[in-house]
Every structure is written in C-alpha cells, then in structure tokens.
Design a protein around this nucleic acid. Structure first.
Length: 924
RNA sequence: GGGCCUCUAGCUCAGCUGGUUAGAGCGUGCCCCUGAUAAGGGCAAGGUCGGUGGUUCGAGUCCACCGAGGCCCA
C-alpha cells in the first residue's frame, strides 16, 4: 500500500515561481480604485499626512525616484496597518529651466528661437512637454505599486496651483518680505538677456592678464597687488578680498616700493612680474582687513575684506572685488553692505557712473583704455595675454559677463512677528523632528548662512511675478487686492498664468484701478517669473492647508533637499504663516553602484527601475529599498539584485508552505484556543510576537532595513529551519482533524496572517497575492490586505515561560545537530530519523529535555531519544553528554520514523496504525 | 578648498552610555533529503572592525590626522 496517500501532504495553488512582471500587472488592475476605497472605509480614522515632494516633470523615473516613492509608500501603508487614514497626493514640479531648454532645443531643430514664437506659444510647448512626462512618470510610479491619489495629483502648472502661488506671493509683498535690488547674473550683451548658470558654455577666450598696484592710503609707497583678467571691472571695484588665515608678505623693492602679496604666491608673482626685493614682514590676512586703499584711477577709496572665496591657486592672494560683476564679490559685498555697483548698460557699454574716459565705450574695448590709464598712473605692475576657459552665451557664442541687474528678493532679515525671517525660520527648525538627527544641523547651518532668496528669473516658463509698475511715477503695484484679483483670473483661465502674458495690464488689474501714489492709470507688467523653488515651496499652501491641516506629518526626500525643497517650503511657510509646514522631515541618501560610486552614463553603471521591474518585478525593487540603510548611500548592482531575488524566494516559499498546509483549515471553527495549544506552537507564536514588536518598532523608527533583517531571519531560521521542519510530522502524519494538526494549523494561520500584514508595506504585490489565497481560507476577510484590520499583536502572544524552556531546548538542538553531522560524516546515519540520541548529565539542558520526554525526539527530528549515557559518536561538555547511535528497529513506511519491532502493528508503527484506523483506512 | 555624513566577514546589517575568545542572515564549500522539490535541512570556513597615531588598566566603541566614497556649497 502506498501510505503517501494517507498523509496530509501540502496542497496549494499558490505558485512557487512568482512570475512577478506578469502577475503584478494583474494585481494593479485590482488596485485601480483601492486608494478611493481606503479613503472611504477609513474616513473616520485619525489622519496621517505624508506630503509628497514634487519630482521634476522631465524624463523617465530613475532609481532615486523609485527609492523615494517606495519609502513614502511603505510609510503610508504602515500607517494603514496602524489603523490610520492616509492622505497622499502626489505632485509634479513643471516649470523651470530644464524644460525650457529642452523645448528650445526642439525649436532649434526647426531653426526657430523662442523669441520668434512669443511667450504664449512657447509656454504652450513647455506645458505640453511637462504634461507628457507627468503622465509617463505617473504610470511608472503606479507600476511600482505606489498607493496614492493618482487621479488628483498636484501639478505646479495647474491654474489652481498657480493661483494659490500668486496669493502666497501677495502675502509676502503685503508683509514687506520682498525687496527689489540688484544682483549680478550672467548677461549676454549681444542678446541683451540674462542667462542661467546652466545655460552658459565654457569656451577658450584670450584676455589681458594684469597685475595692478592699489596704493594704501595711510602708508606711502605701499601697494596691495591684485591680479585680474577683466580690467573692465576695475571701474566697479569697491574692495579687495583676502583669506583671513593666509599669510601675506610685504616685499620691499629696490626703489622703495612695498608690495603686499600672499606668501605662498610670492615666487610665482616674482617670476611673472620681475619684481624683486626682500620680505620685510609677513602678516595674517586678518591683519590686512580694514586697510584702506585708493582706487587706481577713480577718486575714491576702498578697504580690505575677509573672504572665504580667496584661493592661493593663482594670482596674488588679494582679489579685486566688484560686487556688481562677480557672484562671490557680491556675496561678500552683501555681508558688508556694499552695493552691487555695475556702471554697465544692457549692451555692455559704460554708463555715466563710470569715469568720463570710459563712458559709452564697450567693456571689452575698454580693457585697453584701462590698461593705458594704469600705465599712465604707474600702477600697472605687469601685463600679458592669457587664454583661459570663459563662459559664453550658448546661443550667440559670444562671451557673457556678470552684470548686476534688478531682481526680486525675499529678504532674510525682514521682520515676521517681531523677528527676522531668518531667526523665525531657525526657531521653527528647532521644533521640527529631523531624521536622521544630523539633518537639523545641515539645514540650520544653511539657513544661518544663506543669502537673501532671489525669487525672480528672466525667463519664459514659470509663474509670473504679478506686479505692475506705474508708468507715471514708477511705483510698484503689489497690493493684496491686486494679487487676489489676478489669482482669480489665473485660476479661471484654461491656460492659467499664460493670461499674464496675453492680457494688457488694464485687463489684469481690478476695474478702474489707479496708482495709489500718483493716480495714474497706465501700467506696465513685470516681465520676470518666479524661481521654481518658490513654486514647490508653496505646495503646503496648495495641498496641505486646503485640507484644513496646518502641518504635514512628514516630508521625505533626498538629503539634497535640505538646500532645496525643505528650505524653500520652510521659508515660504514661515514667511506666510509664521511656522514650518512639517512636523518631521526624513531624508534618504543617494543611489550608488556596488562600489559605492555614483551612477553616471559615462561610467556605464546606471541601473533603471524599469530594468528591474521588467526582469524581476516591482516587489524585488521594493525589497531592495528596505534591504539597506537608506540614510546613507544605497548601493545597487547585479549582485545585490541577485541576493534580493534569493531573499524574495525564501520569503515566498515560506508563505507558500504555510498556505499549503492550511487547505483544509477553517479558522473560525477549527482553531485551537491558545491555552490548549501545543507548547511548541505557543513557542513559535511567542517568537512571532517578538518579531511583531521588532518589526513595528523598525517601521515606527523608519529603520526598514531592520524590518527586513528581522523578517528574513524569522523566515529562514525560526520558521523554515526549526518550526516547519519539526511540525511537518504533526501536519502530515496525524488525522486531518486531530488536535496535533489543528494546533499547528492554528499557529500557521496566525503566522501567515501576521507576516502577510507586516510585509505588505514592502512586498505589496506578493502580500496581496497571498492575501487572496488567505481569503480562500477565511472568506470573511476584506478584499485587499490594505483594507485588513488585523490585530497582529493579539495573534502573537508572548509567553515567557515557554520561551525560557525553548531557549534551552534550542541549545540542545544545536548540540544534537552537530553530533548528527559528525555521525553522518562517519557514515553512521544519513537522515536524522536514522538516529537515536542519548542525552545525559546533570545540567539544565538535560532536566528541561526530560520535562518534554515524550516529544523531544520530534523536536530534534530524530527517531529515538534516551536519557542515559550512550552512543558511538558523542559530544561532551559541562553537565551534558550527547551521544548518537543508529535508531533501533525499522522505519515506519508511513511516517518514516524508526520504531522497535514491538511498536509496529502490521507494517506500520502503532501511531500510524491508530491514525489509519481513525481515518477508516485499512492497512496491512 | 569648506560644511555635513559614511567606511565592521564576499554581500546586507547588529554591536546601548568604552570592558570576557566581534554577532546574524545571505552567499560560498562540503554533506544529507527527495512527502515545501527549478524546494527543504545540517555542518564548516570566512572579519581584529578603512589606515596611522593618541587618550585609557582596557577601544570596533572617545580624540587627531590620513585615505576612500556620498550630498551640498565653492
């Protein structure tokens, strides 16, 4: 007789092979309305808001996006498990330079320029471009299983969003947080336009290289020596910068002149200029600070300033400073109250503010005149031509210059509720929880040091700075009512803010509006648009506050956003509402390759989420996200993916084993009450309870890699290697409805439910798939694991008494395994069932093992255990001796355990014979 | 060049306020099973904690410097 048919062998339709790429798309169909359903069913619960930072709507998603969105998804889904309601509205950032550039590039192919087609048409093209990628990315995010309100995302180019942004801007103007002042930007004097940093191209250019003497005011014949390749900026010179910690030497030459030059650069300057002399003293840069000098050819003086921007790689270590013509000069200048002086007009000609010999002259042509002037004054130390890399206009290929132009700024020192914006922002930083903790220092030092926020851009694709200028008196029109009025118009216009560029000022202003200062009724529109960081910085106002909530529970982005979105959002919110828009901010690191190097096309080490999804499935991608500590760089590569795939298999098979042994189990009628359960089943539930605690604390502390390690270890150690291995005998051999089997099935069912729920935030697809199989066991369960309301802790009671005993029994088991291995090696046995184990000694292990005398052989997966000294192969230690011999008797063909002849009834063991009898099966 | 951060077995991670022979899982090797089977089980070998120098009775754990890498700034 084939006894195999009388066993309760596992049965399941849950496939071993996941085939995720295909299966996941089916599950996605099921999830189509899931978010809505959850919102509906969980509507009474406490809300948790993770506010999405908007990715830029350009290109397909990359690993960084995937990492970010999966982390968010895990947190959202964990909150569902905790019994909260979530609100997750994904967003996109749509305006700005990269899209503008891409569209311009496309235009160029048709030999067109954006100037030729006009702002409105150009903006339309940008909008279409952004829209296309919003749709693409949306599909990609949905594909990786991100749960959210994908039907109603927030999009910064939506009229509604733009309207809110304009209102926010209005608040800033109303609170006097915005000022107009000058700042140097890249400027093309041929195209007469500002250019963004990302737009200029570096090319070789030949320029004069001159060393100039700046006479000290209070010390005769003593000169600061500066070096410059832009003599034309000398008329705008307002100071000299030095490095505070550098050493500067005073060189006295033959004719009595004293030159001040950085000591480290002395040799190179001497060599270049031919000056010679002896060092009469050397001082620190900070000792030079505040020294006053006379401008070489203009009747004014300047002083020496300390600067972190001075380097000793070239020049003299003393840097000529023109705050209107250099960004570093400007930054230092701001610090000391210097204006960004720039006596140069749109077309690159000197204005009336320049000395008379230069007025009206093109700056590049003026170089020679200035050099002549310096020679005339005997202040030119040396002159030559050099060729160096210099920024050029990307369209006309001519050199660009830095030129101070009027810009709008949010002033960090403006007052908000009695404090400066900066102080208030710093105060708010203290109130926010930063994860990891050092994130706080990072953003704090950035906010402490940051310059005023320049929010204007001289570009086409963005939200306009909706202010007017009175043509009569030049007054800036920035009344709140005007902003509200324009916001209304924008919100109700199909193309939103495009109306600003289409309509006349009269159409945009409230009817009959006159200049509050001069009563004039002719106005000019501001042409500038807003910095995209202001766009996304308003998202709390556009998304969170309309829900009636003041703060998001969490913002979660890459650590680069301490400078970007976190800061923009903080400043915008503090300026507008006096507080931070978030309670907590979590940051993650960046995706790097297996060597820890950053990914780049040229290195060829880029891996895309699409590749992983198509080859292995989104759950593999999701498992990867939690496999590493994301607060630092997170590595990915083929080897790492392989490892993740292995782990996935282990977890999947563990789930499968449980399912396959529950095919005849009805939890409502066949569960064994906890108190009556078999001790080993109580033990595994207790272990599960520990796992639940660890996993929940891992989730709560955002340490998902700990969740991963805990679950993986539980699956492979506690479950596969111990519990399943031991419990198989009870599951397979006993009568289907026996206590022995039902008790273990009760445990298995609890474990399956709990692990499925606990893993669902991570392995969302697989857990949903498992869930569908669990629902065949319990038909009362809700349709999705994400709608489940499983009280995981209740299903996994911790039992310390049992844990204590089993802690000891497990030690015994480990010892026995070693002895069995030795026996196997020596050929005594092959399968553990062929063994009889002898346990003796007066230690704790022996006494606990005796307590479980009738069961201990099953726990050790051997056929027989004797509590006496014996065995051919043995292990001995303090108070314990374990021996192994061949089991006595013969193997029962049904349960495979060895029994003595007298323990057989017919050709099966008495245990099996009894089971068969109860089952009504006749054996031989 | 500056600020912040990281560096423990082949891989991913533990290792609390400094204190016995540095742990886990995976992978690897060898073996077993064939009633989880393109599965399952067992045993074993692998680190002196990026490097150097300090503080200390004692350091992976504190300090300094160096190296590799990441983010931001320049």
């Amino acid at each position: 007789m084939d006894y195999k048919n009388t066993l309760n062998l596992p049965r399941t339709s849950f496939p071993m092979k996941a085939n995720l790429p295909q299966r996941e798309t089916m599950i996605l169909t099921k999830w189509t309305n899931l978010y809505k359903k959850i919102q509906h069913e969980f509507s009474k619960k406490e809300i948790f808001i993770l506010h999405d930072g908007p990715p830029y709507a350009n290109g397909h998603i990359h690993m960084g996006h995937a990492l970010n969105k999966v982390l968010k998804d895990i947190i959202n889904k964990f909150n569902l498990i905790k019994g909260k309601r979530i609100n997750y509205i994904p967003g996109w950032d749509c305006h700005g330079l990269p899209i503008e550039q891409q569209v311009e590039k496309n235009l160029k192919k048709e030999n067109k320029r954006k100037e030729d087609i006009g702002k409105v048409l150009f903006r339309k093209m940008c909008r279409e471009y952004a829209k296309k990628f919003v749709e693409i990315q949306k599909e990609e995010f949905i594909r990786i299983g991100i749960l959210g309100d994908w039907e109603n995302p927030y999009i910064t180019m939506d009229p509604k969003y733009q309207a809110i942004e304009i209102k926010e801007l209005g608040k800033f103007f109303k609170k006097n947080l915005i000022v107009k002042s000058k700042k140097p930007v890249y400027w093309c004097i041929y195209d007469k336009t500002a250019e963004a940093e990302a737009e200029v191209e570096y090319r070789e250019k030949t320029d004069p290289s001159i060393y100039v003497k700046f006479p000290l005011k209070d010390e005769d014949n003593t000169f600061l020596v500066i070096w410059t390749t832009t003599p034309w900026t000398l008329p705008a010179n307002l100071g000299v910068m030095v490095g505070e910690d550098y050493e500067y030497s005073f060189i006295k030459t033959g004719n009595g002149d004293v030159f001040i030059i950085a000591r480290e650069l002395l040799d190179s300057v001497k060599e270049k200029t031919g000056i010679n002399g002896e060092i009469i003293k050397t001082v620190k840069g900070r000792d030079l600070v505040d020294l006053e000098y006379e401008h070489p050819f203009i009747d004014r003086t300047g002083i020496v300033y300390p600067s972190e921007f001075v380097t000793l790689t070239s020049g003299t270590g003393l840097v000529h400073m023109a705050p209107g013509h250099g960004i570093e000069d400007y930054t230092v200048g701001q610090r000391y109250g210097l204006e960004p002086f720039s006596p140069v007009d749109d077309e690159g000609r000197f204005t009336d503010e320049a000395p008379s010999f230069l007025r009206g002259i093109n700056i590049f042509k003026a170089n020679e005149l200035i050099i002549e002037k310096l020679k005339e004054k005997n202040l030119l130390l040396f002159e030559e031509k050099i060729t160096h890399s210099y920024p050029h206009c990307w369209r006309c290929k001519n050199p660009v210059i830095f030129r101070a132009t009027p810009q709008w700024f949010i002033r960090m020192e403006s007052e908000v509720n009695g404090k400066t914006l900066r102080e208030k922002a710093l105060e708010e930083i203290e109130r926010v929880k930063w994860i990891p903790r050092y994130g706080k220092n990072r953003i704090k030092s950035m906010v402490e040091q940051r310059p005023d926020w320049c929010i204007s851009r001289q570009r086409y694709w963005g939200v306009p700075v909706t202010v007017f200028y009175c043509e009569g008196c030049g007054t800036v029109i920035a009344d709140e009512e005007v902003f509200e009025h324009i916001a209304d118009i924008v919100e109700n216009h199909p193309e939103g803010a495009d109306i600003w560029f289409k309509a006349e000022p009269e159409e945009l202003l409230p009817k009959g509006y006159v200049c509050p200062k001069c009563g004039g009724n002719k106005f000019k529109k501001e042409e500038d648009i807003l910095d995209v960081w202001f766009d996304s910085g308003c998202s709390h106002a556009g998304v969170i506050r309309p829900l009636g909530v003041k703060k998001a529970d969490l913002y979660l982005e890459g650590s680069d956003q301490h400078r970007g979105w976190f800061q923009a959002s903080l400043l915008e919110s503090v300026g507008s509402y006096g507080e931070a828009p978030y309670k907590a901010v979590l940051t993650h690191g960046f995706v790097v390759d297996e060597e820890g190097k950053k990914m780049s096309k040229s290195e060829g080490n880029v891996i895309s989420p699409q590749e992983i999804i198509n080859q292995y499935g989104a759950d593999i991608l999701r498992l990867w996200v939690v496999s590493e500590d994301y607060t630092e760089d997170i590595k990915i590569g083929q080897n790492i993916i392989k490892m993740i795939v292995e782990d996935y298999r282990k977890i999947r098979n563990t789930m499968r084993f449980m399912l396959s042994n529950l095919y005849d189990f009805d939890p409502s009628s066949q569960s064994v009450p906890y108190d009556e359960m078999f001790h080993f089943d109580k033990w595994i539930l207790s272990r599960l309870g520990r796992v639940v605690n660890e996993v929940i604390s891992g989730y709560e502390n955002y340490k998902f890699h700990l969740v991963y390690h805990t679950m993986r270890n539980f699956a492979s150690k506690d479950l596969s290697s111990i519990y399943f291995d031991v419990v198989k005998d009870r599951l397979y051999v006993y009568k289907p409805d026996s206590f022995e089997r039902r008790s273990s099935q009760t445990a298995l069912y609890n474990i399956l439910l709990v692990t499925t729920v606990l893993l669902s935030p991570i392995l969302s697809f697989t857990c949903e798939e498992v869930w569908e199989h669990i629902r065949e066991i319990d038909k009362t369960l809700p349709e999705s694991v994400f709608l489940a309301n499983v009280e995981v802790k209740k299903l996994a009671p911790i039992n310390e008494d049992i844990e204590r005993d089993y802690g000891i029994l497990l030690k015994l088991r480990e010892h026995v395994m070693k002895v069995l291995e030795e026996a196997r090696r020596q050929g005594f046995i092959k399968h553990p069932y062929e063994a009889k184990v002898f346990i003796s000694g007066d230690g704790e292990i022996t006494s606990v093992a005796r307590k479980y005398e009738d069961y201990i052989n099953f726990f050790l997966t051997v056929s027989q255990v004797d509590f006496e000294d014996g065995g051919n192969i043995f292990l001995k230690e303090e108070g314990l001796k374990i021996g192994v011999d061949r089991a006595e008797g013969k193997k029962c063909p049904r349960c495979w355990v060895y029994f003595k002849e007298e323990d057989f009834k017919g050709d099966v063991c008495t245990r099996c014979a009894e089971v068969l009898k109860e089952m009504g099966v006749h054996s031989n």
